[in-house]
Design a protein around this nucleic acid. Sequence first.
RNA 1: GGCGACGUAGCCAAGCGGUAAGGCGUGGGUCUGCAACACCCUGAUCACCGGUCCGAAUCCGGUCGUCGCCU
Length: 328
Amino acid sequence: MKQPKPPLVVLTGPTAVGKTELSIRLAKSIGGEIISADSMQVYRGMDIGTAKITEEEKQGVPHFLLDELEPWEEFHVVLFQQKAKQYIKEIYSRGHIPVIVGGTGFYIQSVLYDIDFTKEDGAETDRKEKAARRGTSALRRVLEELAQAKGAVWLHQELERVDPVSARQIHPNNVKRVIRALEYYQQTGEPISVHNAREREKESPYAFCYFVLNQERAVLYERINRRIDQMIEDGLLEEVAGLREAGCDRSLVSMQGLGYKEILAYLEGECSLEEAVYRLKRDTRHFAKRQLTWFGREREVLWIQKEAFPDTEAILEFMIKQIEERVY
RNA sequence: GGCGACGUAGCCAAGCGGUAAGGCGUGGGUCUGCAACACCCUGAUCACCGGUCCGAAUCCGGUCGUCGCCU
């Protein structure tokens, strides 16, 4: 007799496609509680630039992983996964269905396939460094310095030596990933390519529905452009200026978020406001495109092409039907 | 009407006789502890016609177009 898998609903899609609004309607009709899978909305005080849902818009639906950290705290997949799993458990205990909503595909993947991040001891050994250096491990720092001093090609050759499979998969210029692979190998003695291959085979522990809301590219881009103009009107400049006064600078992961790094560049006199807005729009469009490629390679995804439905009601109906078939 | 400048991919733009740099945008892709990150791939025969030359985007002539100045 096999245990029935617990239910899980995922609603994602490129930025500005309209996930938030739909998520509330969905959660209300299936008795769901929402877990945000968004690497920037976890931060307090970053509201306008992340297009965070307001209290009012939540309409009483519980939300998690929103406003849980200060902008100078670190956040990454592993943390996300830990917290999300905890919340999922709690939601089950209330007899509700967890609905993961957000555009960070990597985060979604980490819980959906319960990717194993525990092999490494990095998190332990770094603890004392963490406070000072934003969680950058000593080993990682050494590798970063080596990359700086000896160059990307040299570093890549080091990887070639210990993990030729990864070396072939990671472009030499992608220093960040080369470092990660090297770091993994040095900490575990196992090539990360072996780990990745293993994790990739995993079957999800959940009975899930993975919805990707999408719409015609041109329309989406238009929405993005408009949304950014709106953010400026709503006071994005003030929001970023406030964070800056609070001591946030561009070295913070949070300040690398779209809308923050561009406006910070403007506030620091690096470019005109017009230029900053132009870059922000462009980078956001690029981001949406990258999100779509990501979802395109995920398995078992249910695409919802907006223009194929007459209205939101019809989309909701489709989603509920899918959930009934697959999740219960 | 006259004089001058210019006309290179969707846009910006180098080249100035030897067989088309680069940037941006666009499109595609990678990603398993920084992921709203990082990274990779992606296009033209040079307005048109004729001439000179072994060879022309590059020189000459003409046509068309754009811009500026002048009457």
